[in-house]
Amino acid sequence: MPLPRARQIVLAASERRRLKKLAYSRTAPYQQVVRIRIVLDAAHGYANARIALRRQVHIDTVRTWRGRYADQGMDGLKDRPRSGRPPRFSPAQRAEVKALACQLPAETGVPLSRWSSGDLAAEVTGRGIITAISASTVRRILAAAALKPWQYQSWVFIRDPDFAIKAGRVLDLYQRVWDGRPLGGDEYVISCDEKTSIQARCRCHPTLPPGSARMMRVNHEYDRGGSLAYLAAYDVHRSRVFGHCAPTTGILPFMTLVEQVMTQEPYASASRVFWVVDNGSSHRGKAACDRLAARFPNAVMVHTPVHASWLNQIEIFFSIVQRKVVTPNDFTSLDQVKDRLTAFERRYNETARPFEWEFTPADLEDLVARIERHEQKECSQQPPGHSHQPAALPTAA
């Protein structure tokens, strides 16, 4: 009985260039590359046995992909649909898992603050929705719907009726504008705040440095050595930090920081120095503005809106301090904390550059417009006589 002849492959010039490009691709799937190289060898006139030897595959594999390409072209090199294992859970059961994940545990009578995959798996089986299901399967079901009930994001109501005006003033200052006019060369913007309760935790065993295949090791047990407050002022455009430590926050420590900055050049002889502060008790309200102006006539205090400390650039510097200086906390005394903060301040000032502030007045307008649309939508959905809460801003969890 004569053997079947190999299928002939004839390629056009454009088709050959396309296949060669794929055959030497570094990103295409390996199986696809092998199949394309089989087709190119066949078009070159090689026999099936020689192609199998060249590509280190079985001769039946060569016959399969050679024949499929001859019949269907590039579509013939794709995998055919496979039935696979039938799904264990019905669409209705998957929907019930997602619906349960979208409820607060307390509303369902479960004494938890938020769901985990394991908690959801136990609750689903306990209710008889599914006979048995693993936590990893629950996680895959939720991932398909972009649900992560174990995560949360906090938010806060806007209580300041002048939110847009106050926020706009701060953002204008970051762009060196005040009351619609550019700031002069002898006008400066200072961002200021306090970082409270920095503790001195003396570990019971020394911290071990990292080594080969080992991260830094910090002992869990420690003795408390007290706490202090770190007050800092940041020149927004000159990227320079001034700070000092105090036993606690208050009007006197804040004014000490102001004195430290305003008695040195170029601020002492500046025409105006704008101090951007939040609404903390040390510098809250008109009394704080008057107190600052009385001591330094060229100083202007500018408050961020209530619950909008994220508009204060000094918070970025404090986050750097938290990551690079305070964590992990291993200090023998408060004096060591002070020395470390002072040394880091000098180090930071040597290479600091202004922060790339991205929230602009245009972004503020978009945010206010979005909040107004949200409030109008809520008002239209509320029954008559129902009290309406102001819209909320997201904050970092």
Rank of each mutant, 00 (worst) to 15 (best):
F296G: 14
P253F: 15
C289K: 07
F274R: 03
P247R: 08
L292S: 00
G250A: 11
T249N: 12
V277G: 02
D278R: 00
F274T: 03
A268P: 03
S281V: 13
G285S: 07
S271A: 09
F274W: 07
A270F: 02
A268R: 13
Y267P: 08
T256A: 15
P247Y: 02
P266K: 14
P305G: 14
A299W: 01
T263L: 01
G280A: 12
F242M: 02
R284A: 15
Q260V: 12
S309G: 06
N279D: 08
R295F: 13
W275Q: 04
A287H: 09
F242P: 00
R240Q: 11
V261G: 00
S269Y: 00
G280C: 05
A308I: 08
S281C: 09
T304D: 04
V302H: 06
S271N: 05
F274Q: 03
D278S: 02
A294V: 02
F274A: 12
A293I: 14
Q264H: 14
V302M: 07
L292T: 03
S309T: 07
P297Q: 01
N298G: 08
T256V: 14
G285H: 02
Y267G: 06
R272Q: 07
A299L: 05
M301C: 10
A294Y: 05
H307M: 11
L252D: 13
G250H: 05
W310K: 14
Q264A: 06
V300H: 12
H307Q: 14
E259N: 08
A308F: 08
E265P: 11
W275S: 00
T304Y: 09
